[in-house]
Write a protein that binds this DNA or RNA. Sequence first.
DNA 1: CCCTTGACGCGTT
DNA 2: GAACGCGCCAAGG
Length: 110
Amino acid sequence: MDKDSFFKDVYEVAKLIPEGRVTSYGAIAAYLGVKRSARVVGWAMNGAITEHDVPAHRVVNRIGVLSGKNHFQSPTLMEEMLAAEGVKVKNDQIVNFEKHFWDPMIELGL
DNA sequence: CCCTTGACGCGTT
DNA sequence: GAACGCGCCAAGG
């Protein structure tokens, strides 16, 4: 496992997020074994936007707030994409976040 | 090479 | 229960 593959791992996990589901930076970081490095996951996501296969819009912070929406092509794009997948967003925050939460630790099994 | 910033998270006040 | 501060890691200036 190359150290540089960390970003790639983040992309891989993000790609595994099903439609209508969302996860948090910390959840991905924890799954990769660097749970204290959620910020780095966010940074990785920044590059993930250029990767068309990575649904960065399905990754939010631990409280379900679209903290990164401002980094997308359009500030409203993230909310639009989530809404299109059945994830309701209210005031930049995902409604029933726990209900839509997709934990790689559980879903992928660790 | 040192300092600052950032799509986070948790503990403390 | 909201606000604040510290820790972590990587990138840019």
